[in-house]
């Protein structure tokens, strides 16, 4: 499968973007693990779609932008990015913190998305069902909470072959920076007021959860659905944790296919 990698100019600097496949266009926003190359879910979807997957600043090859301090900063950036990608009004998939940002953007810019498959979005807070504080866990435990499948987890933790010492250093720093960036979006709590804005979202939203998600428990699916005007909740995917698209790539791709918009 041909993969095109290009740099998309934005006010936050060039954004590394992967494009693959042919067919209806789907924008794909990665989760807290970042994006070094197209994932299995993106490749599955690209069999019959044109997948456009930008790496957000600080999540891999796209450098961090120190002016992105608040959720508001990120929403303004994401709005610009959808313009620069030419994907305003398209179908999108987004995971975890980026699903929260996508919902924030959909609330203030209703035309931004035609539809959104939101995979385990952060952004709400129930004190009686708070979920695990991911960043108070050891790195090993963080990985176990993000991904349920041990093989996937091992693959994520495995160092790419052929990296020299400089490459290993850059990879280590990059992994720290993406944890830093993801954490900053949910620190100290993920609630930035999204609940008060979700009623403005007009795009159709499909809510997807992993049944083993302990970071944002599956019960949050109904909470989001109650606040969104047009949302459906897919039954939680068994065997998947928070990063559903990594644990169950085919299942998520199938849900996106079913989402005809």
């Amino acid at each position: 499968m041909d993969i095109e990698r290009r740099e998309v100019a934005t006010g936050s600097g060039p954004v590394t973007t992967f494009e693959l496949g042919e067919g209806p266009v789907v924008g794909f926003l990665h989760g807290p693990a970042g994006l070094d190359e197209p994932t299995a879910c993106m490749r599955d979807l690209a069999v019959d779609h044109r997948v456009v997957a930008p790496c957000l600043p600080g999540f891999g090859p796209t450098p961090g932008d120190p002016t992105l301090r608040t959720v508001h900063d990120w929403v303004v950036f994401l709005s610009e990015l959808t313009d620069r990608l030419g994907l305003v009004g398209s179908r999108w998939v987004a995971s975890s913190v980026s699903a929260m940002l996508a919902l924030e953007l959909a609330a203030v810019r209703p035309e931004a998305f035609r539809s959104l498959v939101a995979v385990a979005p952060t952004g709400l807070w129930d004190p009686d069902d708070p979920g695990v504080d991911l960043y108070s866990l050891s790195l090993t435990d963080q990985e176990a909470h993000l991904v349920a499948d041990e093989e996937v987890r091992t693959a994520l933790a495995t160092l790419p072959e052929g990296l020299d010492a400089d490459g290993l250093v850059e990879l280590g720093v990059s992994r720290y920076v993406r944890r830093r960036t993801a954490a900053s979006l949910v620190w100290p709590l993920p609630d930035h007021g999204l609940a008060d804005r979700l009623h403005r979202v007009v795009a159709k939203v499909v809510l997807v959860w992993g049944a083993e998600d302990r970071i944002v428990p599956p019960s949050y699916g109904e909470r989001f659905a109650d606040l969104l005007p047009t949302a459906t909740v897919v039954p939680p995917i068994v065997g998947a944790a928070h990063l559903v698209a990594l644990d169950a790539p085919a299942a998520v791709a199938a849900i996106v296919r079913d989402d005809s918009g």
């Binding site: 960043y135 108070s136 866990l137 050891s138 010492a165 290993l168 250093v169 280590g172 720093v173 720290y176 920076v177 944890r179 830093r180 960036t181 993801a182 954490a183 900053s184 620190w187």
Partner: peptide, 24 residues
């Protein structure tokens, strides 16, 4: 509890880089 001593982002990038370089 060790994770309380190292939330992601507390260390500067330069400090993290120096630490990773040392480990490598």
């Amino acid at each position: 509890y060790p994770p309380f001593a190292d939330p992601p982002g507390y260390q500067t990038e330069a400090t993290v880089r120096a630490g990773v370089e040392g480990m490598v």
